[in-house]
Design a protein around this nucleic acid. Structure first.
Lengths: 197, 197, 197, 197
DNA sequence: TATGAATGAGCTTTCATTCAT
DNA sequence: GATGAATGAAAGCTCATTCAT
């Protein structure tokens, strides 16, 4: 059986919203791309806000699942590999799904305030767990003498800043997007925090 | 003499555009905040696009001036200080002017495509020189044995990725915004590329 | 056996139409209150117009029955009691069924013209008989010397005007709605037409 | 100079609203009848609600002025003439301006509740004074022995009920609308309350 | 320079209705 | 009988822009 209309609508909405943001995405254009009439959208979603929130929920779940998978897959690795695996997989996910990255950017940075407040609580919640996992893993590294004794909170900030910055740089300049680059940048970070003895 | 209406319009536009983006910023709201009527805006600018482009040009010039100042002020410093000075001043500028950072984010990521193409050539142009300056400075460091022998292009990417990532992180979580954090993160980077002899 | 869906629909429609009028009553809301889906209404009625006309027909029949009952019940009374009985029972009926009164107001005064013309002929038809009964009864009164010799048509108009005006006043100001008031007002009328000899 | 657009809009709105009510009156039709485009209405009124409220305010003022005029003009008359003058002038005003009567009916009976609450306080306020004037005048009549000793409140209710009922009857059956009828009905009322000595 | 008035285009949403299942 | 999905039409409203004054 073919993909349901509801799913098609969400898929089209993701694309458009990622490119054009909340204001720039119109119900007309969504309907056109799905191949139905504007009014038909309202048989599936109660309105624009509901539609976009529904897309958001799917992606939030996808994000949670991804993080869980990465953490469980890296469970038996050593500290360096764990951190690198998370680093690489995270970047790869968004590089492979640029629309999803653009979607999150839109949500985080540029959705009208009366709409966006719904999203925040939901989203950041799970992120705290990931933050914790990174800090815990860095702690492990310190205990094992692999990483210099320092504030894991700050290291985690650096880790994330580098990751996000790289991801964004790759978005804007797609030629940066090579496995090679990911590895090199990772190593600069790793040497920066590596134990110096 | 008081600030000219034209300047007031640009100032209000910067604020609104930074917060709400291209679609979310309306000529009506600009006029209201300036204290004139919508139609009067057209005595100063030929339209919405022209108005925002004009704001853009001012900020682009400000950016060029800032970069020139940083580069010239750091002229006599040693390599590490030069790179750190640029790192710190750049971040400070945007932390002190969050609207300007938000403005650039809007321009870079979320302006309707038919509008945004005007901006790119202009803006990135000057950035190439800065990019070059960073790479040249890194080269100097390598020649002086301060920095490991490696691809300066990749190091520059890491440098910028960290900088942008940190800046964005500070935007979203203002409590990260401390001189202390900037210094710590910088040091992780510096140790990552520092000569290991 | 439980009330049929068709009857439930009509009952809900009466309520909504009385409160909100033709335009304000939507098929959606009717369906919601009945507990079925909008589309299901069309299994029972061919459309909105048909549905409301059907409610109208029921109420028109109810009105006819009421008038017949009042007239037959008052058959053996004397003239004054006859007229007062009709006066009181008529008012009581609408006071006890405010939705029905509101329904008739909506029909009479505020239904879109392309819809309402269907109703008129039907409704006013029976009313003529009542009008006649009132005039005949007044004539009786005149013949018996109870009522001043005058134009029974005009007296009937006064009778009805007072009745309708009182009913409407009671609708708007429910505190007027007392048996006492009905009786007092009736007496003003009765003394107004009573024989003065 | 010709009638202003704003006035023309209000005039058209009065007509349409009187005929079709709140829901039935559309901004499109108003604009068409005025001879401008729909969007232009919003240069004069902030929306449908504002527009209709504005019409309402004009009519409320007109009503206040009318009542003041009637009361002052009848100042030196005797009691019977005073009450009859008010009765006749009030009815005449609405008979001459059927749209205004229909407008008030719409407002009082059939405007969506979220809109109508704005109107009530405003309108009924002034009506209390008129109510009082009627009762005071009836009291005068009682003191002068012209009117039977009774509850002036109830007499006033009858007075108004008859007036409203007659007015509505005349609306529905225009052939009732004759000076003759007004006078006859008035006399039934007057004899009903007249002193019987 | 500034503005009131106007407008074409387009927005989100609602509604009565249809029809295959 | 009942329903999910679809639709044409139309609603109220907003927006960038124009133009005479």
């Amino acid at each position: 059986m073919s993909i349901s209309t509801k799913e098609k609508i969400k898929s089209v909405t993701l694309s458009l919203f990622a490119q054009k943001g909340y204001d720039g995405t119109t119900m007309s254009e969504i309907a056109n791309l799905v191949g139905i009439k504007k009014a038909s959208l309202y048989a599936h979603f109660s309105g624009k806000e509901d539609l976009i929130f529904s897309v958001y929920e799917d992606l939030a779940q996808e994000y949670v699942d991804l993080m869980n998978r990465i953490i469980s897959e890296s469970d038996s690795m050593d500290v360096q590999d764990k951190l690198y695996y998370m680093f690489k997989q995270y970047i790869s996910y968004y590089i492979d799904n640029p629309e999803i990255q653009a979607f999150w950017n839109q949500i985080t940075l540029f959705t009208p305030p009366d709409i966006s407040h719904k999203f925040y609580c939901h989203a950041s919640n799970y992120d705290l767990k990931v933050q914790q996992w990174i800090e815990t893993t860095l702690s492990e590294g310190i205990n094992q003498g692999l990483i210099i004794n320092g504030d894991t909170k700050k290291m985690a900030i650096a880790y994330r800043a580098l990751r996000e910055g790289l991801l964004n740089g790759m978005m804007v300049n797609p030629e940066l997007n090579t496995v090679d680059n990911i590895k090199s940048l990772w190593e600069y970070f790793w040497f920066g925090i590596k134990g110096r003895g």
